[in-house]
Amino acid sequence: MAEARFSHDQFRCPVCLDLLKDPVTIPCGHSYCMSCIKQCWNQEDQRRDYSCPECRQTFRPRPALKKSTMLAEVVEKMKITECKTAVPAGPGDVKCDVCTGRKHKAIKSCLVCLNSFCQNHLEQHENLFKGKRHDLMDATRYLQKMICSKHKKLLDIFCRSDQSCICMLCMVDKHKNHDTVSTVAERTEKQKHLGDTQRKYQQQIKKRKKKLSELKEAVKIHKHSAQTAVEDSERIFDKLIRFIKGRRSEVTQMIRDQEKTVVSQAEALMKQLEKEIDQMRSINDELEQLSQTHNHIHFLQSYLSLPVPPGSPDVPKITERSFDKVGKSVSRLRQELEDFCTEDIEKLSGRENCHNSLVSEVGYLEGFLPDPREDMTDYGLCSFSPTLHKSSGRGPEGLH
């Protein structure tokens, strides 16, 4: 019941802002952690005047300190209640620097005290320094990086000569006579350049999206053209099945190989562009977060390591060449074969002679279709350019 009637604030040490540990009450009535008040009075030993950090009442001689058992019991209950209600810090959270034992999630960082505070300790911080200007910012895990390792001061100056963040003492020491400005001023200047860099990334993303769209459309057209060529070739080869059944599959395979080569190359390019777009989006998101951060020091330190935006993508075009040459070549072959066979059949006087003549002519048919090993470079990435071997007389010359 006693716990419900009092606020946690009444049982916090004014020095460390945490719940009292080994509480003692000094003559003026204020209570402190025994270690905190001892540390304060040890610093006053030379003056031999011992004062209360809260009300500044002085005592002489140094009062004897004795642990308050009843107050310690109440504080212990307060700690149990606070542990149940406070938000514990997770793996990615900034931890409160004041909490003892299990750390709670910090919500603000003080640039004067150089500490991060959870909700409970932030209230104590504000009450303790009421009327005093303490700059607060959203809790950041970069707080230690914002402090000068040598002077333990805030890095609120930017040295343009050395391109680094420094503190006030560094400015009058190692960086004397250097070109220095405040981090706020340098942030304002760098923010403009960051905007230009971000726009370049956005432009490159748009260009890659356009190239990706063009490649997809080119592949679609190429597939359609290849399918049409295959169907035309199949239809023509059906009429010549008795003569060129074996060669039909070779021509079909050549077309499919060409399609596969072009499509596989285009798909590899598309995959690369998609990967680059994802990477650039990720970098652009980081740039967006960096552009909105209120932490000037983190901004400047991160800005110095920004990657250089890439140039325009070098993507070869897929030439929109059709497979008309394949169809025309096979059509000419069919017509020449029909004319050739018709002429031979009319000259034959008997059925047996006609059969023997056709059998002998089948050997010549191989020369009318191109060798699948011939060069196929007339079409974009890979092409098929058949030619018909014409000759005077009954059959092709030079085919063997």
Rank of each mutant, 00 (worst) to 15 (best):
E3T: 13
F6K: 10
D9R: 15
F11W: 07
R12S: 14
L19T: 10
L19D: 03
I26F: 06
C28P: 02
G29L: 05
Y32R: 04
I37L: 07
I37D: 03
K38M: 11
C40G: 01
W41D: 12
D45M: 05
R48K: 14
Y50S: 05
C52I: 06
Q57R: 09
P63M: 07
L65Y: 04
L65V: 02
L65T: 01
K67D: 01
A72S: 11
A72R: 06
E73L: 09
V74Q: 03
V74Y: 05
E76V: 01
I80C: 03
C83M: 11
A89H: 05
P91F: 02
P91Y: 02
G92A: 14
K95H: 11
D97F: 07
R102S: 15
R102F: 04
K108G: 00
L111I: 00
N115E: 14
E123C: 08
Q124S: 15
E126H: 02
N127K: 13
G131D: 06
M137P: 03
A139K: 04
R141Q: 13
Y142Q: 13
L143N: 05
K145S: 10
S149F: 05
K153A: 13
K153C: 14
K153T: 09
L154H: 13
L154Y: 09
L155N: 09
L155D: 02
I157K: 13
C159N: 02
R160D: 12
S161G: 13
S161V: 07
I166M: 02
M168W: 07
M168N: 10
M171S: 13
S182P: 01
V184H: 09
A185P: 00
A185L: 10
R187T: 05
E189N: 09
K190Y: 05
L194H: 14
G195I: 01
T197P: 00
T197S: 05
R199A: 15
K200S: 10
I205W: 04
K207T: 11
K209M: 12
K211R: 15
L212P: 00
L212H: 08
S213H: 07
L215I: 00
K216D: 15
K216V: 12
A218N: 14
A218L: 01
H222I: 00
K223F: 04
D232M: 03
D238K: 08
L240P: 01
L240A: 08
I241H: 09
R247K: 14
T252D: 14
T252V: 13
Q253Y: 01
R256K: 15
T261S: 11
S264Q: 14
L269H: 04
M270V: 07
M270R: 09
K271S: 14
K275F: 08
M280Q: 12
N284A: 09
N284P: 02
S291G: 12
Q292P: 00
H298M: 07
S302E: 15
S305M: 06
V308F: 05
T319A: 12
E320R: 11
R321Q: 12
R321M: 12
S322K: 11
S329E: 10
S329F: 12
S329P: 00
L333M: 13
L333T: 12
L333E: 00
D339V: 11
F340V: 08
L348R: 11
G350I: 02
E352N: 06
E352L: 09
S357M: 08
L365A: 10
G367C: 15
R373V: 08
T377H: 14
T377K: 15
D378T: 14
T387E: 13
S391F: 07
S391V: 03
S391K: 06
G393W: 06
G395S: 08
G398A: 10
L399R: 12
H400W: 11
